[in-house]
Simulated assay, not measured.
Amino acid sequence: MEIPVLDFRVYELGIANVSAADLEKLSKELRKAFTEVGFVYLKNTGINQEEVDKVMHVSKKFFCLPEDMKKPFSRGSFSCNEFHGWISVENEILNPRRPGDLKEAFNLTSLSADNKWPSEGVDDFRDVHVSFFLRCKDLSLRVLRLMALGLDLEPEVFLNAHKHIGSDANATTLRPLYYPPVNSTCVKEKQLRCGEHSDYGSITLLFQSPESGLQVQNRAREYVPAPSIPGTVLINIADLMQRWTSDVYVSAAHRVLLPPAGDSSTRQSLAFFVQPDDEAIISCCDGSDKYPPVNSFDYLLSRFNDNHVK
């Protein structure tokens, strides 16, 4: 089954008044995508391609710096947040059965101006990324509202657990990713640009450069391509949301393949991982006990420790 493309124009960022009929129609379309596939492309969201290209341009300037200029910003060196910062190539193993992933990333988990921020050669790094973080936050809240409506729940059910996005009381993260050129003669056995995994939180927003490689697992457990479609954002359900909805909304595994032999192109993406507030207790929204209640941050930390760090 192909990943559907939905038109979000009636509820795009900047539109204040939306009819109940339009919201209901869009919520049903989202529900169908999230229950049958786990992924959906949205077009006409209000976030345009120029905004995405600008963030990718700035993040690439950072990733192309010498390693000794990036090390001071390494993840784990920020006292305010253990997730915030730069991750080097092969430092993560998202599928523990494979070697380290052939990618770099920078986690923007804390927006505090008091943090160390890259400046030399990328003096607009913080401002550009924080601005995009807030745009993704606004779009995410609209999607979460529609997801509740699609389940015939009160529209604030999910929003009430995401009140602190952008603060130190919430681990939502904007993650620019950079996949450097691959020398096929030096790749380890079974190594990928990003190993098979599912995301941990509520939902994920993904913006991709034109280079291919992303695959998602459909309900038949087959991996199918998820190409870049200019002007769209690819959204998927994450594991905590699947628990929250008692397996109605489906979290799907995904991966990024190596480029073909001889292909020296790079790849970029921007992932916005939406996480409930740290102190939120996530219980099945249908009142069942299919999954026991879990603290949002404890769940994130357990998944991070199990699957994320080399």
Rank of each mutant, 00 (worst) to 15 (best):
residue 245 T to C: 08
residue 263 D to F: 05
residue 131 S to V: 08
residue 46 G to M: 04
residue 237 I to D: 14
residue 234 L to R: 09
residue 179 Y to H: 08
residue 296 S to G: 13
residue 160 N to W: 12
residue 201 G to V: 02
residue 8 F to I: 08
residue 157 V to M: 12
residue 70 K to Q: 13
residue 78 F to G: 11
residue 47 I to N: 02
residue 128 V to Y: 12
residue 119 S to E: 15
residue 171 A to M: 11
residue 284 C to W: 00
residue 202 S to C: 13
residue 72 P to V: 13
residue 227 P to F: 00
residue 299 Y to G: 04
residue 180 P to V: 02
residue 165 I to Q: 06
residue 241 M to L: 15
residue 164 H to F: 08
residue 159 L to D: 04
residue 296 S to K: 13
residue 291 Y to L: 00
residue 164 H to E: 11
residue 192 L to V: 07
residue 190 K to I: 00
residue 258 L to M: 09
residue 201 G to H: 01
residue 29 E to Y: 01
residue 50 E to H: 06
residue 41 Y to L: 14
residue 130 V to N: 03
residue 220 A to I: 10
residue 174 L to H: 00
residue 156 E to S: 15
residue 73 F to W: 09
residue 186 C to H: 13
residue 182 V to C: 06
residue 54 K to E: 14
residue 32 K to H: 11
residue 186 C to Y: 09
residue 302 S to H: 01
residue 266 T to V: 11
residue 221 R to S: 15
residue 173 T to L: 00
residue 39 F to Q: 14
residue 48 N to G: 10
residue 187 V to S: 07
residue 259 P to Q: 05
residue 275 Q to F: 12
residue 223 Y to C: 11
residue 200 Y to N: 03
residue 220 A to C: 13
residue 31 R to T: 14
residue 161 A to Y: 07
residue 298 D to S: 13
residue 198 S to M: 10
residue 297 F to E: 06
residue 55 V to E: 10
residue 174 L to N: 00
residue 279 E to S: 14
residue 246 S to E: 10
residue 291 Y to V: 00
residue 275 Q to V: 05
residue 90 E to D: 06
residue 230 P to E: 14
residue 286 D to N: 15
residue 267 R to T: 11
residue 179 Y to L: 04
residue 18 V to D: 03
residue 117 W to K: 13
residue 297 F to D: 03
residue 280 A to F: 13
residue 230 P to F: 08
residue 106 F to S: 02
residue 226 A to C: 02
residue 278 D to M: 06
residue 300 L to P: 08
residue 57 H to E: 15
residue 304 F to I: 10
residue 111 L to M: 12
residue 68 D to V: 14
residue 131 S to M: 09
residue 244 W to M: 11
residue 198 S to K: 09
residue 141 L to W: 06
residue 221 R to A: 15
residue 215 Q to N: 11
residue 38 G to W: 05
residue 224 V to A: 02
residue 168 D to N: 14
residue 88 S to Q: 10
residue 264 S to V: 06
residue 172 T to C: 01
residue 88 S to M: 05
residue 202 S to Q: 03
residue 215 Q to C: 07
residue 99 P to I: 01
residue 46 G to D: 04
residue 163 K to H: 07
residue 251 S to R: 08
residue 83 F to P: 01
residue 290 K to D: 00
residue 38 G to A: 12
residue 183 N to E: 13
residue 143 V to Q: 02
residue 88 S to E: 05
residue 2 E to G: 00
residue 249 Y to A: 11
residue 210 P to W: 06
residue 4 P to G: 12
residue 107 N to S: 09
residue 248 V to W: 07
residue 221 R to N: 15
residue 148 A to I: 03
residue 92 E to Y: 02
residue 236 N to L: 13
residue 157 V to A: 10
residue 241 M to R: 05
residue 43 K to D: 07
residue 136 C to W: 03
residue 64 C to R: 12
residue 16 A to W: 00
residue 19 S to N: 06
residue 39 F to D: 13
residue 196 E to K: 07
residue 283 S to K: 04
residue 199 D to L: 03
residue 173 T to I: 00
residue 174 L to S: 01
residue 137 K to H: 11
residue 101 D to A: 08
residue 62 F to S: 13
residue 298 D to W: 00
residue 38 G to K: 03
residue 218 N to W: 04
residue 46 G to V: 03
residue 195 G to N: 05
residue 127 D to A: 15
residue 248 V to I: 15
residue 19 S to F: 04
residue 181 P to V: 01
residue 112 S to V: 01
residue 255 R to F: 06
residue 190 K to G: 02
